[in-house]
């Protein structure tokens, strides 16, 4: 069944148009046009109030502004209703209109009405990928808050000669928003396929952000280390000392990569709890190549 007041009103209006109490055959063309207008109005509502991501308004209480601040989980209802409406309208509803009310019309007219209806109904499905993207983006952004702790790694390993032995605490939190989302009661309105699609898309987006942020940390560590090395070598040359002792130490970048390697292995194990194989995610493979030691580069296993 439908979940939203607006979707329910659309279906009721469309049904009223072609109900035996209201419909008059001599006004068929007008009722057909009215039906298309009703679908168009609902479509505009979806577009302007739910999908208008970049709506700009100086009035903070405008509808668009409020729509943007809605929890993305609410889009589950919209996705569910759009799917239901498309199935219902292109099935039983269209059959009722064509086979019962307009059965005396020529096949050419029936074909035109059928195509007109189907085009209007299917245009609703154009919103599904946009709604899905908004949900993926909204939920994965919640994980970015925990990923920001990555920035603290550099400072930690620049101050110590200790080698990392276990993963960082932030790793356990990265997928928590995904878990919260999947545990939400609204998810019951998603089909198994759509739920799975969202799960994989969110995991891919989070991993992609993880890769971006880890790359920034490693690149910055390399740059800093390279600058420090040049400074040290300059100082040693001036003092006439050998640089051998310095070169034999494990660098800060190595330590950071060692920790990140432990982190992404734990992250990969956490992904597996959701039924996601980390090695199937392109960004995870890039992340692995970024931080894995030479002898572990070839195969992703943890």
């Amino acid at each position: 069944t439908l979940t939203l007041k607006q979707s329910f009103a659309l279906l009721e209006s469309l049904r009223t148009c072609w109900s035996e109490e209201v419909f008059i055959f001599t006004c068929s063309d007008k009722f057909f046009r009215l039906s298309l207008q009703l679908l168009s109005r609902y479509s505009t509502w979806l577009s302007s109030h739910l999908v208008a991501k970049n709506a700009c308004s100086s009035d903070s209480s405008s509808n668009s502004e409020r729509a943007i601040n809605k929890p993305v989980e609410d889009f589950i209802y919209v996705m569910h209703d759009v799917g239901f409406l498309v199935a219902e309208l292109s099935g039983d509803y269209l059959e009722h209109v064509l086979c019962r009310l307009l059965e005396s019309c020529s096949s050419e007219v029936l074909d035109l009405v059928r195509r007109g209806f189907l085009q209007a109904i299917r245009s609703l499905t154009d919103y599904l990928p946009i709604l899905k993207d908004r949900m993926v983006e909204g939920i994965s952004e919640r994980s970015v808050e925990d990923l920001k702790q990555l920035k603290g790694i550099s400072a930690t390993y620049r101050m110590t000669s200790k080698l990392p032995v276990r993963h960082s605490p932030y790793v356990s939190a990265i997928l928590r928003p995904l878990k919260t989302f999947l545990d939400d009661e609204r998810v019951a309105y998603l089909s198994k396929e759509l739920k799975n699609e969202l799960l994989h898309s969110i995991a891919e987006r989070i991993t992609s952000r993880y890769h971006e942020m880890a790359s920034d940390v490693v690149n910055l560590a390399r740059k800093t280390e390279s600058s420090l090395l040049r400074l040290r070598q300059g100082a040693q040359r001036r003092a006439g000392a050998s640089s051998d002792a310095m070169d034999s130490n494990i660098s800060d970048t190595d330590k950071i990569c060692m920790l990140l390697f432990l982190d992404i292995q734990e992250y990969g194990r956490n992904l597996a709890i959701f039924g996601i194989q980390a090695s199937h995610i392109t960004a995870f493979r890039s992340l692995w190549q970024l931080v894995a030691p030479e002898d572990r580069q070839a195969q992703i296993s943890f």
């Binding site: 939203l4 007041k5 607006q6 209201v22 008059i24 006004c27 009215l34 009703l38 409020r66 809605k70």
Partner: peptide
């Protein structure tokens, strides 16, 4: 008069939908 009849029906049917769509909030049935 069929024209008047349809006009009234139009207002009734489209009006009912429009009043629902005027609400930007996601409202459960």
């Amino acid at each position: 008069n069929i024209g008047v009849y349809f006009s009234l029906r139009f207002q009734e049917i489209a009006g009912a939908l429009d009043s629902s769509l005027a609400d930007a909030n996601i409202t459960l049935v």
